[in-house]
Design a protein around this nucleic acid. Structure first.
Lengths: 209, 209
DNA sequence: ATTGTGACTGATATACAAAATGGTCACTTG
DNA sequence: CAAGTGACCATTTTGTATATCAGTCACAAT
């Protein structure tokens, strides 16, 4: 899995201090490892400090709180998914095909996060539950992506043009949510991969001119 | 709210003993009151026994387990919703309108359960999480209902006929789930009542011939 | 026979003291 | 002054001893 770093440029809320990217990255890297191994709850800020060879207090020169570190990790995970989505889009020719790939890539990789990186998945779930910025940015990003695809499909004549763009988009985001929101995906794991495919078909029927 | 008792004839699993409906109903009534006031967890089987003037052991002449009582209560709640749905359907003329009402009635009354009978809602959530028979019966019932409506719409020419009925139905059940499954509805409460309406519109577009 | 009981048991929940943690800040170090 | 520390405090988390509960069963009452 290519680890293209997200360039969501997720609003770095909770980040503070000078732009000493080296140390900040060291913290993030240590956090990603510890969080994915032991989980967010069982990792202490002191653990992270020890891992990078500093004391706990110094961490707070770079991050407002432990949660801010969690948000950074979460933004990384979700950013990876959006990267994979964009990667999957480059050789898709039609808006229809792009739509299919967005849906498929998101549901598959969210499920993969659940099965392969369960501890990080749990952070993403908390992020969704508590509406952290990292989750909001992810949703906004996907929403914007879908909007351009819908517009493209409307222009090419693949999709209908009567329904207001906003409503089309909101409707689609609603039916996509169970496959991209960790809180909901948890309850649909045993309906994969058929469910997202069936929903995609339904949506494409609704988009037909 | 009219309390038309459900006639889902929900598979009475976990129910045992003779059909002494009076005492069994007494147990169920006591359970509904206690569960809705104090919750499933904080109600003991002895509490229910005391409420009907018997001893704990006697309860088990009628129900296999405490969970079986919970299932009965849950089936009652969900059965009330299906009753309301059927009630809403009697004066709907077109399949389109019937579809709208199914969606609207389910989402509104599930949310009402959350806000007005939170403790009972929690039981329904556990029922969904642990896949109790009461939840499965509810889903099956709604699914069957939707199937007849789709068929009706197909025959009247309101809906398209190309897509296999099963796939149409499954797709619709997938997008309905976030509004009828308590586990998912919890996370969509602040998108009501717009979200179900927008999803309904999307589905109706997908059903258009 | 039918209706009903309450003592018994392993598993679960509660309560509460002790330990650990997130976060701050005055201070040291180079 | 910039980089970094660790004692300190309020809040959570954890460990654990105790109490409660779900479920059974032999038996009592009618």
């Amino acid at each position: 899995m290519i680890a293209a770093m997200n360039d969501i440029r997720t609003a770095p809320s909770g980040v503070r201090g000078p732009a000493e990217t080296e140390k900040r990255d060291a913290i993030v890297n240590a956090a990603k490892e510890h969080f994915s191994l032991y989980g967010y709850g069982k990792t202490t800020v002191s653990d992270l400090a020890k891992a990078i060879g500093f004391s706990k207090g110094y961490i707070y020169k770079f991050f407002d709180s432990k949660q801010a570190i969690g948000e950074a990790i979460c933004a990384g995970c979700l950013g990876e998914i959006t990267s994979l989505v964009e990667e999957a889009l480059v050789d898709a020719t039609t808006a229809t095909e792009k739509f299919r790939r967005v849906f498929k890539t998101i549901s598959e990789n969210s499920a993969a996060l659940f099965f392969d990186e369960r501890k990080l998945y749990d952070i993403a779930a908390v992020s969704a539950l508590e509406r952290w910025g990292s989750s909001q940015a992810y949703v906004d990003h996907v929403s914007a992506l879908l909007q351009t695809i819908i517009l493209e499909g409307r222009e090419s004549g693949e999709f209908e043009r009567k329904t207001p763009l906003d409503e089309t988009l909101r409707g689609i985001m609603h039916v996509l949510e169970p496959f991209m929101n960790p809180l909901m995906l948890q309850h649909k794991l045993d309906e994969l991969p058929d469910a997202p495919n069936e929903v995609t078909n339904l949506v494409l029927r609704s988009l037909a001119p």
